[in-house]
């Protein structure tokens, strides 16, 4: 009797220490993970002066000596005329909207075809898709530039939309993995009822595939907000056409900058981050499903 009580107590105690240990570890890790993110936030709102000059460079103190919206004002007022942030934001929005529609269409159709339809050349297409995916993307950048130039599209948003969505058909693996799980019997019974292949796709398979549609759409929507290399090569010197990623990166490390604008860069980053992070967190459930499906299928 006494023994069991003791045991019970020690189990409880060990569970308590384990709980405390878990919380402490999680706490420390959270601090590490939030430390750089908070730094961006604090820098965005930092207003420090030195002898009357606003300091926009990086500073050594993590906690700002003064807070305010001065950096956001510079960002929106665009005193030099070279950083039309609002324009960049609108550009990115346009590009990502079109990209996400086109990419999602491409990805889902290829994935569905590869998963559920049987036709000659299917296996060949699968292998070619794998092989093409293995060439480093930067390699083709110059060629893509010349192709776009031959059809007079360099320096335009159309070009970006084309480039971001054209290759989407190759990224069908995750969605294919998802479609593979949908039982064939479901489709066969529909076929017996006289449904055509296109009807099966739109009326039966797509409604069942909400998670993967959202996953694909989410990724293709976010893409244009993050790419600062391809967009720069395609847009060249046309600053009015820049996306936020190119613009902000140029603001920080372009050769243009006479004085580094870290705090303004941070302010821009915060504005870009708010919609993406919100979108991402609200769609997190679907993202996890997609990632899990993708990983398990490889």
């Amino acid at each position: 009797m006494i023994k069991t009580v003791k045991k019970f107590k020690s189990v409880k105690a060990s569970r308590l220490t384990s709980t405390i240990f878990s919380y402490i570890t999680l706490g420390i890790l959270s601090i590490i993970w939030l430390y750089p993110i908070l730094w961006i936030l604090l820098s965005a709102f930092r207003v420090e002066y030195r002898d009357g000059n606003l300091i926009t460079t990086v500073v050594g103190n993590y906690i700002p000596k003064g807070l305010g919206l001065e950096n956001f004002r510079i960002l929106f007022e665009n005193p030099t005329g070279n950083n039309p942030f609002i324009q960049w934001f609108i550009n990115t929005l346009i590009v990502s909207l079109f990209t996400f529609i086109l990419s999602t269409l491409f990805t889902l159709s290829v994935a569905y075809v590869m998963s559920k339809l049987r036709f000659p050349m299917r296996k060949k297409f699968l292998s070619i898709a794998i092989i093409l995916g293995l060439f480093p993307g930067f390699m083709s950048m110059i060629a893509i530039y010349y192709i776009l130039k031959a059809i007079s599209l360099t320096g335009t948003l159309y070009a970006l939309i084309l480039v971001y969505s054209a290759g989407a058909g190759l990224g069908f693996y995750v969605a294919k993995g998802f479609f593979d799980i949908i039982p064939n019997s479901l489709m066969e019974s529909a076929r017996l009822d006289g449904a055509t292949n296109s009807q099966i796709f739109t009326k039966i398979v797509l409604p069942l595939s909400k998670p993967i549609i959202i996953y694909t759409a989410l990724l293709s929507f976010i893409g244009p907000w993050m790419d600062f290399i391809f967009a720069k090569v395609i847009l060249g010197t046309n600053r009015q056409m820049y996306t936020v990623a190119v613009g902000l990166y140029e603001m920080m490390y372009g050769e243009q900058v006479s004085s580094s604008q870290f705090t303004v860069f941070a302010a821009g980053s915060v504005i870009v981050a708010i919609p993406i992070v919100t979108l991402f967190l609200s769609m997190q459930k679907y993202y996890v499903e997609g990632v899990t499906a993708g990983a398990v299928k490889g």
Partner: peptide, 13 residues
């Protein structure tokens, strides 16, 4: 000369 603004930000007077 292109470093002037940053230098002024950093050192002030």
């Amino acid at each position: 000369a292109w470093h002037f603004e940053s230098a002024q930000d950093s050192l002030g007077n």
